[in-house]
Simulated assay, not measured.
Amino acid sequence: MGNTVTKFGVFAADELAGTWEVTTSERCTADEAWAQAARAIDMLGAPEPASAILSCVVPSLAEVWRSALGKLCGTRACVVGPGLKTGIRMRYDDPSEVGSDRVADAVAARETYGAPVVVVDLGTTTNIEVVDESGAFVGGIIAPGVALGARSLTAAAARLPMIELRAPERVIGRSTRSAMQSGVVLGEAARIDGLLDAVMDELGTDAPVVITGDGAAQVAALISHDAAVDETLTLRGLHHIWLRNRR
C-alpha cells in the first residue's frame, strides 16, 4: 500500500500469478478493505489465498488492512516492520524509520540482481535504495515524485495548467505545457542521473540500476545510466520476506 496506489500481487507455487491496482483510499473500514482485496482476487481469477503479507506506508491504515487480509485468508497477515525477518542487514541509523516498501525493494533487488545494486522507485516520492557489495542496505535518497512536482507547480502558480507527464520533443519548450513537461519530466530524469552519479561515487563502484514504479520504462529511456525496468520488484520482495517468515 503506497500513498497513491495500492497494489495486490497473487503468488502461486512461488510464482507471481497476477497483479491488480486500486487507488489508495485515505480512509476505509476493514470491511471495505476486505472487499477491495476480495475483488482483486476475483478479477485475477485466483483461488482463495492461504496467507498474506502487507507493506503499508500509511500508518493509519496498517491495522485496517491487516484485519482485512486476516479475514480474507483466515490467518493473521504478516506486516513488514520491526520483528519480521527480512534476510537483509540494515546499516541505517534507525532501521525502524525505513519504509516497508523500501525494504521490499532492497530485498528483491539483491535476490534478483545481486550486490551491489541500486533501486530507483518512482511513486508519490522518488526513492533511491542502495545495497552495498556485502549485500547490506546502506540507505538511500527520498525526493518528491514527478507527479507531486507537477501538482505543486499547478497549485502554486495560478496560470500553470495540469500537464500530461510525458517527455516533450525538445528541451526548450515552445509552449507553457511543453516547457513544464521539460522541467518536470526531463528535470526528473536529470535529477535521477545526477543522484546516481553521486551514489556510484560514494559506493566506489558502478552498481546495476533497477527502476520500478510509475513510469519506470519512460524514465529508464531518458536517463544516461543503463537500467533494468522491473515493475513487480516490490511485490517480489514481499514474497521473499514472506518465505522467510511463513510457519
Rank of each mutant, 00 (worst) to 15 (best):
residue 107 V to P: 10
residue 157 A to D: 05
residue 4 T to P: 03
residue 217 A to I: 02
residue 212 T to F: 07
residue 125 T to F: 11
residue 81 G to F: 05
residue 1 M to Y: 07
residue 147 A to S: 12
residue 57 V to I: 13
residue 158 A to W: 01
residue 15 E to G: 03
residue 69 L to D: 08
residue 85 K to T: 11
residue 229 V to R: 10
residue 32 E to K: 08
residue 95 P to M: 04
residue 59 P to Q: 04
residue 241 I to Y: 11
residue 136 A to C: 06
residue 229 V to K: 07
residue 135 G to N: 04
residue 134 S to H: 07
residue 129 E to H: 09
residue 66 R to Y: 07
residue 57 V to G: 03
residue 208 P to R: 12
residue 23 T to R: 11
residue 62 A to D: 10
residue 184 V to L: 00
residue 9 G to Y: 10
residue 98 V to C: 03
residue 179 A to Y: 03
residue 39 R to K: 15
residue 140 G to P: 04
residue 120 V to N: 06
residue 144 P to F: 02
residue 125 T to V: 14
residue 168 P to D: 03
residue 109 A to D: 08
residue 220 A to I: 00
residue 219 V to M: 15
residue 185 V to F: 03
residue 232 T to W: 00
residue 143 A to S: 15
residue 102 R to Q: 13
residue 48 E to T: 15
residue 178 S to E: 11
residue 186 L to V: 05
residue 179 A to L: 08
residue 243 L to F: 00
residue 36 Q to E: 13
residue 16 L to N: 06
residue 197 D to H: 07
residue 137 F to V: 10
residue 193 D to N: 15
residue 164 E to Y: 04
residue 175 S to L: 08
residue 93 D to C: 02
residue 198 A to I: 06
residue 1 M to D: 06
residue 33 A to V: 03
residue 99 G to L: 11
residue 143 A to Y: 02
residue 74 G to E: 02
residue 63 E to H: 13
residue 240 H to R: 15
residue 38 A to M: 12
residue 133 E to H: 10
residue 199 V to H: 00
residue 82 P to I: 01
residue 143 A to W: 01
residue 96 S to F: 02
residue 233 L to D: 06
residue 14 D to Q: 14
residue 19 T to D: 01
residue 18 G to M: 05
residue 48 E to V: 15
residue 152 S to D: 01
residue 133 E to G: 13
residue 93 D to W: 00
residue 6 T to A: 12
residue 82 P to L: 05
residue 28 C to R: 14
residue 218 Q to W: 01
residue 233 L to T: 08
residue 113 Y to D: 01
residue 120 V to H: 01
residue 107 V to H: 09
residue 123 G to C: 06
residue 52 A to Y: 09
residue 40 A to F: 05
residue 77 A to I: 07
residue 111 E to Q: 15
residue 114 G to N: 06
residue 72 L to I: 13
residue 136 A to K: 01
residue 17 A to F: 07
residue 126 T to V: 12
residue 35 A to H: 09
residue 187 G to K: 03
residue 69 L to E: 11
residue 209 V to Q: 02
residue 36 Q to P: 00
residue 204 G to C: 09
residue 67 S to N: 11
residue 195 L to Q: 12
residue 45 G to E: 02
residue 77 A to L: 04
residue 55 S to M: 02
residue 62 A to P: 06
residue 124 T to V: 03
residue 2 G to K: 01
residue 84 L to W: 06
residue 196 L to D: 09
residue 44 L to R: 10
residue 20 W to V: 02
residue 23 T to Q: 14
residue 110 R to A: 13
residue 181 Q to F: 03
residue 223 I to M: 12
residue 46 A to L: 04
residue 91 R to S: 04
residue 230 D to Y: 08
residue 124 T to D: 00
residue 150 A to F: 05
residue 131 V to D: 05
residue 167 A to V: 04
residue 130 V to W: 01
residue 127 N to G: 10
residue 85 K to C: 04
residue 34 W to Y: 15
residue 207 A to N: 05
residue 179 A to T: 11
residue 76 R to H: 12
residue 188 E to Q: 14
residue 88 I to D: 09
residue 6 T to P: 03
residue 157 A to V: 12
residue 10 V to T: 05
residue 53 I to N: 08
residue 177 R to F: 00
residue 168 P to C: 04
residue 99 G to E: 02
